[in-house]
Structures are given as structure tokens and as C-alpha cells.
Write a protein that binds this DNA or RNA. Structure first.
Lengths: 355, 355
DNA sequence: TCAATTTACTAATACGCATTAGTAAACTTA
DNA sequence: TAAGTTTACTAATGCGTATTAGTAAATTGA
């Protein structure tokens, strides 16, 4: 327990002024209050010499606003950090928060406590605003209620017209991946989801895009080629092993994330099949290792760092009540053609196009 | 900007008691103050009905202690999240902080601001204590000074006898990795560091262990087989390409992290060499994908999640001024024998030992 | 030269909670 | 039945800052 803390009053005493003046000087209100340079310097020096650091709680209480922003991670505890998405979000977010003097407060939200967690964090004024990761649509009402109380909220997926968001157009990414496989001549394409279809709306949407992409090219969607995984490589491995029991085999598989794609890759290779010759494989996310495996993984790149940065930028604008030109920002994806899809095998001398 | 906030005074009014009583009830001081159950319930109900959430800043100010703990990441911005270490630390840490009602405040420390960042965060009382990742020994004095002011500090590596720490015995891990390669008959073993040797003390220590492990078996340490990488796969790739110019080639390579090991793997395979037949490879960290690549990577597992959990546990004890039985906790590593080292190739029918 | 303005400040208060030091009423005890 | 004790509370204050509403002194303007 800290013993002696330096307060603004002590600085005031040392500089021979009032606490008010110290506050003015240290918060750049000197000009409006006609405080001469000489006094400013005296105060600053006193503060420096005493090692004065403003008490965050007192400041927040007086100002009515915290200098923290909350990052709400609404995922099961052990899934939050399976891939590089959240770390990248944090990297981008911390860049912008640092520029504006905010800090990041992490809040892991267990499913059953959703409502309380959002609301308590905001109402406790522990944070000036929150960024909500992957909210489901049934969170919209809760967030909307909070927003109407005047709290600043940005979501990392567009779930409601009036709640500002920054999102990556993942559905278009799915389409790119599937169309790429179709273009390579595949007609039986398997799919590994990252969550149960019945309970996860995002998965359903992606699967629908998957289906439409097939049907738009006159192909048949066969739900016997769909398997449910759960984010991590093990589940991709199991899902793929199950797919390998199908007959005829799918000639290509789209995994909804790279982690599961690698599980699938292991299953395929264990079965003595070659990638991409026997089964082509496309993932989603573009994890750091995707370029460095054998075969290198064809996948969809998402601009996660920018995603975090832009979300922070938007949130800070909201907090400052600055005008928002575009409350729903959509970022694009890129198809990264590498070796697991077979394109390079068929086009050895051409640089892969980016789409 | 939120409009109407519910304060404890409003709860008091609604329940027909004083604000003091509300505070007693909601902080479980009812018993000491002879508050009958009936009143307790009345207050609780009023709080519930009004949706009362205590103001964090006011509470911190009154109590003199925050409910946040700081996680100081003292690494270059873009290196923090290259591997899974920090995410795992956060996962473990959030588990224990949640149990005790603390939240995690992230602080990325740029090198040049070290001193200010540590001190300001603590002195501002924004956090009740800090966990410092990978501090260098020259941070010890600063941390020591803070500690003597009464602040709670735990480091994730033992840098000073009086600063409590939780660490993983990485040096022993290095020894395990190198001895494993030696046991497999390798005599020319390359090494890829994750940072420049001259400027990074941790790297120097590990390299020394590497050298000693060789020499203890009568082998010669050849610094022509050492290359400097910088955490990520690209640098491992470049380092390995450079090693492949050596003649004779090393028959095995130890990379100081898995990310670089995968870069090295790519370089080896691009050169038309086989792993492990031509060059054996061992990494460090045991990233999630290590089991799912071809070949699967032999590496050193570190208990990162436990590391975070234990550090949080220790910090909370410090904050609560509870007795600390053991201020320096050391966690062990495990050698995970997979395919890249060649052990399984040589022992196809035996389950690999764990060490 | 005297009122009006500007300069350079300060006193006082609010922010919302926790906590200490009470107090009035009810209940014991001798 | 009076003194002491317990019960069930409350008034008042402090935490450290930001901010509003001043104020005395110096300067300006006509």
C-alpha cells in the first residue's frame, strides 16, 4: 500500500499558487485563464520535481469520463485466443488509443453474463466507451439500450443500423474462396464450419453464401459434405476424417478458419492423400504461418490490425462527440493463392492474381 | 455522454435509508453494523430496481485502490503478439482476475518510455498492481523503486531477488532441446536466435546454455552455425537460408521459437532437403499448429496459461498483503517429440518419452 | 481622472463513494 | 429504576481532481 502520494495541492504549495492554478496549467487551460509563462513554468517545475502524477480515479470522477476504453470479448474463454484475430485487433487498437491517451481494459464476457458485463462496465464509468467483438444479433437490444443512455459503442460486426461498426466483409471473403475453388474445376467441395450451424448465425450466413456460390455456377450443394468444427485444429482434423469417409470424396475443402484447415491438412496427409492433387484446401484468416507450411495454405486475408485501428478511431470520435461521416465501415479481404488449392500447380509460371 | 446516472444516494432514498446504509449493505458490512435482514433486502431491491452500478472512479477514490491490474508489455509493438505467449498469459491471467473481481488493463510500453509507463500507471493509481512481461535487468532498479513505494509488482521473469516473479525455466528448456538433438547423434547443430546476441541478454544466456550442452558432451561449439533472427517466420527463413550456405551443413538446427522454426522449415524444404532426414529441426514454444504441420514440429512446451494464472495469483496476494510463501515460482517445460527431429523415424514403435 | 476592462489569480464546490464517529431508541442488568 | 448495553441506524467527512464563480490589482480608454 503506497505511503505518500503527491497531490496537486502539494504541487500548488511548492509553486506558491492555488490548486486551481495547478490544474489549469497542467491541463492546458493556462491561456484562457491569463496565466503568465513565468507561473506556468514554476508550476511545471514543481510538478516535475515532486514527480506528480494525477490520480486517475479523482480525475475520472471530476471529469465524469474515464480514459479507458473497454474491449469486450464475447466468446468462450478458451476460444478468444485460438487464432490471431484478437491479438491483431489489440495491436491496431492500441496504436490509436495510445495516440489519444486512452488505455485498453479487457473484459472477457461469459455467455451467461452478457447483459451485466456490457452494462456494468459502462455504467460503472470504468470506461469511456466499448468495442464489442463478434456480438450476436440478440445482443443488439442490450447494446441499443446502452447506446440510448448515451454510451459510446462500436461493434466489430454490423449488427444494427444505429450502432456504429467496423467490419470485415467476411461473406464476400467466403464467396471469393469458394469461387476460386470452382474456377479451378472443383465440383464436389466440402466445408468445415467453425461452430454448430444450428446455434450460430454467422456460420449459417457463411454457409448460405457457400451454397449460393455453388448454385450460381450450376453446381449442387450437398450438405453431406458439410462438417461442424469448433475453431481449433483438432476439430478440423476430426471433421476432415469424417469427410474422408464420404464416397466419392470431395475434391476440395473449404475450412472456415486456418486453424481447422491445418487440422484438415493433417487428416488428409495421414490418409495418404496429397494436397492439392487429391484434395485441394482453402482456409480463412491468413495466419502468420500460412506461408510457411508444406503446402503453403491458400486462404483469405483479413485486415485485422486495420480493423482494430479503425474501430478505435471511430469509438474515440464517438466519445468526443465529433461528427461521424460513415458509421458503418466495411473492410475488404484478399484471396491469397498459395499451394494448397492447386492453382500454382496448374499455373507454374504466372504470378497469382489477388482478389 | 450519459444523462442520468443512478447513485447510491438515489438507492438510499428509494429504500428509505441513508446512503451510508446502502454502502454498508452493498459492501457486505451489514453484519458489523447490525442491519436487519429486512432492511438489507429493501436496499438490495431498490438497487436492483434502479439498476444501480457503483461508480468505479468514486469507489477507487474512496478506497484508495483500483480494481484493475496492469499487464505491462515491454516489447516492441509489433512483436508483442507474434506468437501465442501473451494471448496465453492473458487467458490464464483473466481467469484468476475474474475470480477476484479485477480487470486487466493493457499497457504497451515503448522502450523509450519505460520509466514513465511503469511509474505513471502505478502512481496514477489506475491499477492496484502490475505484472511486467519480459523486463530486462536494467528495469530492475525502476521496478525496485516503485516496489519500495509500496506498489505491488510481479515480473514474468526473475530479475531481482526482492521482486516476486513467476517464470518458466527456459534455460532448462533449451538444454532439453539441445541434449535431445545430441542424443540423436547430431554433432553439427545450428542455432537461430530470436534477437541480436549483442543487445539481448536473454538470448546470450540461452546461447550459453546451448554451448554448454554441446561441450558437456565433448562437442565443439561453432559460432559459424549461429544466426540471428527476430521472432517471426521470415527471419527464421532468412537465417536458415544463410545456414544452408555453410559447408558442411549442420545436420540439425535449434530455433529459439517455433515461428522461426517454421521459417527455417520452409527454407530447408525449398532447398530440396528433407526434414528430418537431411536436417533435423527443433523449435521452442509449442505453438498450437506444431502438431498439425508436415512434419510435425518437435519443440519445447511452456505452460503459458498457468504462467499467467500464477502470476495473477501472486500479484493479488501482494495487493491484499497476504503472506507470500514462495516469492519466486519456477515452472517447467516439456520436450514434445514429434517428427521434425527424427526421433520417431528412428523409433517407430515406441511412444516418445516426455522430458 | 474615474469607470471599464483586462490580468492573474483563488475560494468554494461537485463528482460518488467508503468510512469514522456518532446518536436515539430499545433492551438489559442489578 | 437508573445505568449500561445493544440495536439500528445517520451526519459528516475525506478521497484528489476539475471547474465555476468570483475578486483584487493593474491597465486602459475618453
Amino acid at each position: 500500500m503506497p505511503t505518500k502520494r503527491v497531490t496537486s495541492r502539494q504541487v500548488a504549495k511548492k509553486a506558491g499558487v492555488s490548486q486551481t492554478t495547478v490544474s489549469f496549467v497542467l491541463n492546458n487551460h493556462a491561456a484562457e485563464n491569463n496565466i503568465p509563462n513565468e507561473t506556468i513554468e514554476r508550476v511545471q517545475q514543481a510538478a516535475r520535481e515532486l514527480g506528480y502524477v494525477p490520480d486517475a480515479a479523482a480525475r475520472t470522477l471530476a471529469r465524469g469520463r474515464s480514459n479507458n476504453i473497454g474491449l469486450m470479448l464475447a466468446q468462450p474463454h478458451d476460444q478468444v485466443f485460438i487464432d490471431e484475430y484478437i491479438p491483431n485487433i489489440i495491436t491496431g487498437l492500441s496504436r490509436i488509443t495510445k495516440e489519444h491517451g486512452y488505455r485498453i481494459l479487457l473484459e472477457m464476457v461469459h455467455d451467461d453474463l452478457h447483459a451485466d458485463a456490457y452494462a456494468n462496465l459502462m455504467r460503472s464509468k470504468e470506461v469511456a466507451g466499448i468495442i464489442v467483438n463478434q456480438p450476436f444479433h440478440n445482443d443488439a437490444q442490450r447494446l441499443l439500450a446502452l447506446q440510448q443512455e448515451g454510451f459510446a459503442i462500436v461493434t466489430l460486426a454490423n449488427i444494427h443500423p444505429t450502432i456504429p461498426s467496423v467490419m470485415v466483409d467476411k461473406l464476400l471473403g467466403v464467396r471469393k474462396a469458394v469461387k476460386h475453388l470452382i474456377k479451378l474445376g472443383h465440383e464436389r467441395i466440402g466445408c468445415i464450419t467453425y461452430a454448430p450451424i444450428a446455434s450460430n448465425e454467422h456460420v449459417r450466413q457463411r454457409l448460405m453464401i457457400f451454397q449460393r456460390a455453388l448454385e450460381s455456377k450450376g453446381l449442387v450443394f450437398d450438405d453431406g459434405l458439410v462438417r461442424e468444427g469448433a475453431f481449433d485444429p483438432d476439430t478440423g482434423y476430426e471433421a476432415m476424417k469424417s469427410l474422408l469417409n464420404q464416397s466419392p470424396l470431395p475434391t476440395a475443402v473449404f475450412a472456415m478458419n486456418d486453424m481447422m484447415a491445418y487440422g484438415a491438412m493433417t487428416a488428409i496427409q495421414e490418409a495418404g492423400l496429397r494436397i492439392p492433387e487429391d484434395v485441394a484446401l482453402v482456409g480463412f484468416d491468413d495466419v502468420r504461418l500460412a506461408r510457411f507450411t508444406t503446402p503453403a495454405l491458400t486462404t483469405i486475408y483479413e485486415p485485422d490490425i486495420e480493423h482494430g485501428y479503425r474501430a478505435g478511431e471511430l469509438l474515440i470520435r464517438l466519445i468526443n462527440e465529433e461528427p461521424i461521416e460513415q458509421p458503418h465501415i466495411v473492410l475488404g479481404t484478399q484471396l491469397k493463392i498459395r499451394d494448397s488449392c492447386g492453382w500454382k500447380l496448374a499455373n507454374p509460371d504466372i504470378t497469382p492474381p489477388i482478389s
